[in-house]
Design a protein around this nucleic acid. Structure first.
Lengths: 322, 322
DNA sequence: CTCAAGCATAAGTGAGGCTTGGAGCCCGGG
DNA sequence: CCCGGGCTCCAAGCCTCACTTATGCTTGAG
């Protein structure tokens, strides 16, 4: 087995014509060079150098080895440089998956900052709702997943014993114990009602006030959360419309077809027309997090993406504070 | 510094998808694989593998490394194979230099046998007389030199003290102490005289009988030897012609222009016309040897060439015995 | 002849790799 | 529900290997 280190020394010897000069060039002592050449000759089983008094000449085998060494060492340094570029954030692609309202607010800000901080890095973005996005993460189809969870459901999975398993499908898709969970921001749920609604003058409204309203619900998880909260308030919401598309929800409310409860973030990039927001009691929050695999969290591009997501989230919540 | 050994292991891990399987493939234990991958990740400074419960996946950096590994390892094995081919006599060129009468007899037989024994090896042949051929050997312009020396001149160089230095030029060109000297055969000097010469009836003639003859001499070294021998016999030869070309010498003798003393080997491949050989007294021999550098003697192609030269010389002298 | 330079060798030291043995984890079968 | 098999990581011990310093030898130049 020829070692690359030996080839490097051999090349230096061939270039300088002497062991001592090669040693100086390589930054080691002359016996080290002498020993390495001896080892290389032993491993190849044939003399590579002929020591003739004055000069050091190559045998044919040595010449062949030096000839190959160029390509091999070039390949090695190319590999090192490419890996270093990825590790040094001068290259590399991170595959991000996000849910819709995240990809329209947090993600653009984060990716713009990432590109500014590390030109050369590339991000591919795919949209998927949390159960599916976590699945993609686990299957290696993405590197970072933006997801959210509603408060009180943090410990949706207690090891194995308890209740768990709300949907037969997900199995452990909602179990994030084995993932790196990076909290980004706490998103508040707000009520959205038509401007001409009877309660549109109030700033804060108990959710029980909406017991008899027609509801427009969002994605499955949000709908489930809505039903839970309403049940706690003592009624079952009458859901007339359900859509993943938040702009559509806002449009429906603006058209006076019902009321909705939706995350503040979903309103960030949309200007509701014909609708206004009200604070609902009890206050409900969802936590937006970035997820990744433990090993991936140590990959520089992934770590940088997480950092930029967190920074964007900070900026976002700071802006909302005003 | 990325080591080729690590790349080999990484490639096995990527191919098999597990450390244990890679270890089995590589013939080592699993912790060895685990440690090597850890070392590789540390030397590159970035994670290369992500261990996700079931399967082992590559990070982008790991993928880049595996991609480069193919070329690097291919280059390494190509280098190993080329060197092995040279070492195993399946390839390689040996540069041979010989004096004329050697290259017409010994050399063809030896090279034919070499090619038969080791197809793939190539030999390049250049003609040069001994002082120059030894110089070429020392300067790296050839690998094996066929040369000859006259008896009594074996120790032409006693370390440094004595007389030495016959020609100011050669300096150490006649000093073979630092060379590998492989004796091939002892070549006897024979007299060559015209068929109508007064002594052509004799089988053995004292050289003193030729004191008044016209002489035709060969190469400078042979001429010098001739002069020495004649001086010992008490006369100075009258040299009317001198040429390196033995066939020309033979032709001149055949034409009755004089007598000559020349090595038997020079007559091996020439049928003298109009001349016949006689044994001269005192008997003079020259020793034909193959020379090479000590380091070169360990090169397989060179060693094989020396062996075939020796074998050819044995066949030649065995044939001459009849 | 003396001096400088270069290579080879020997001995000592240190790092690093490999192995064995054990623990934790996940999966599938009884 | 438990349990065996397979996988990985961790720790400890051993051993090999590479580098260093120090020394001797040879060669070429002044």
């Amino acid at each position: 087995m020829i070692e690359a280190r030996h080839l490097r020394v051999l090349r230096a010897v061939a270039a300088t014509g002497s062991f001592s000069a090669a040693a100086r060039e390589l930054g080691c002592t002359q016996p080290a060079v002498s020993q390495q050449m001896k080892a290389l000759e032993q491993s190849t089983g044939t003399p590579l150098l002929i020591r003739t008094g004055r000069e050091m000449r190559l045998t044919q085998a040595g010449d062949a080895l030096v000839r190959h060494a160029a390509g091999i060492l070039a390949g090695l340094t190319a590999a090192e440089e490419e890996v270093a570029a990825i590790a040094g954030l001068r290259a590399g692609r991170v595959r991000l998956v996000s849910f819709p309202s995240g990809s329209s607010t947090l993600v653009p800000a984060a990716l713009a900052a990432l590109r500014a901080a590390h030109p050369g890095t590339r991000v591919s973005l795919v949209e998927a709702e949390p159960p599916r996005s976590v699945e993609m993460l686990r299957e290696g189809d993405c590197d970072v997943a933006l997801a959210f969870r509603y408060e009180g459901r943090r410990d949706a999975s207690q090891k194995k014993g308890g209740g768990g398993r709300r949907e037969g499908e997900g199995a452990t898709a909602d179990d994030w114990d084995d993932l790196v969970v990076r909290p980004l921001l706490a998103d508040r749920l707000v009520g959205l009602i038509p401007e001409n609604h009877r309660l549109s003058g109030d700033d804060a409204v108990s959710i029980a006030e909406f017991a008899d309203e027609s509801w427009i619900a969002g994605c499955p998880r949000c709908r489930r959360q809505l039903v839970d909260v309403c049940e706690s308030a003592g009624f079952v919401p009458r859901i007339d419309f359900a859509t993943d598309d938040y702009p559509a929800v806002i449009g429906l409310v603006g058209a006076g077809l019902g009321v909705a409860v939706l995350p503040e973030l979903a309103l960030e990039s949309v200007r509701p027309k014909g609708a206004r927001t009200v604070t609902v009691e009890p206050a409900v929050h969802r936590e937006i997090v970035a997820l990744t695999l433990p090993d991936l969290a140590r990959v520089p591009t992934v770590a940088a993406t997480l950092d930029q997501l967190a920074a964007a989230a900070d900026r976002l919540s700071a802006a909302a504070a005003h």
